[in-house]
Nucleic acid binder design. Structure first.
Lengths: 136, 136
DNA sequence: CGGTATCCTGTTTGATACTG
DNA sequence: CAGTATCAAACAGGATACCG
């Protein structure tokens, strides 16, 4: 990423990283945030709260996701320590995905956000309708 | 958005009732989720928790954002009813942005998520380091 | 000051085909 | 079944210029 120095440098880079200041674009949490808030990251984390599931289960559950993005997003989440992957060495392959303890904590917060949006959808749609929704 | 209605293998009814229909491709929640979890949506919502601010204030506070994306993201959030925009008819223009009640609720949840990630960053980075840092 | 219009680029995503 | 490889399309985002 071609992150540039943020115009608000009251602290050193090291200090910003240590404090985890998300406004600093050098902060690694931006990367994690990117995985989590990616188009499929949110949906996958919520989906996995239902318990251990296979690749094809997830593909079926999360509408519209391609194999490629499912694999890639799962790999991101696995690398970040949110998802555990267990491949049983059988033919045909049998791979199971589940949330780690860390992932479960995260998924709870993500789901709280998603649920809130769904719950408030009537208000949100009303807000949109009340103004001539200009551009998407 | 061009979310098309596609022949989606639907989740069970019980599934949809239990957790809402965000898994359905055509669910409007996805649209809102996209605005909220967009690269600048998260940052802007958190930034606006500091209170009413002008366009240029926000541009300065959120490092690296372009005028275009600031304007566009603010318009999304305004259309969704999260942000209030007040333009004072003076020359030169004076426009103020603030969170609505709805937006304040949302911003709290978004900030909780971002804070959690920052707080858990050491664990996350440890998970990443423990494996051959794959891609991205 | 607070935008919009235009053009342009890199990234993300999807369709399809293929493999262990 | 659970992916990977490849290619093409769509989109987010940035730079610049201009306007009320």
């Amino acid at each position: 990423m071609n992150d540039r120095i943020s115009p608000e440098p009251p602290a050193t880079l090291a200090e910003l990283m240590r404090r985890g200041n998300v406004f600093a674009e050098q902060c690694p949490s931006r990367e994690v945030l990117k995985h989590v808030t990616s188009r499929w990251g949110v949906l996958l984390l919520v989906a996995l709260r239902d318990g251990t599931q296979r690749f094809s289960d997830l593909r079926r559950k999360v509408g519209g996701i391609s194999e490629k993005m499912l694999a890639q997003t799962l790999q991101w989440l696995e690398a970040d320590g949110f998802v555990a992957r267990i491949a049983h060495p059988v033919v045909p392959p049998h791979v199971e995905y589940s949330l780690t303890l860390l992932g479960e904590e995260l998924a709870q917060k993500v789901e709280a956000l998603a649920d809130w949006i769904e719950f408030k959808l009537p208000e949100i749609m009303a807000a949109r309708a009340s103004r001539e929704n200009p551009a998407d």
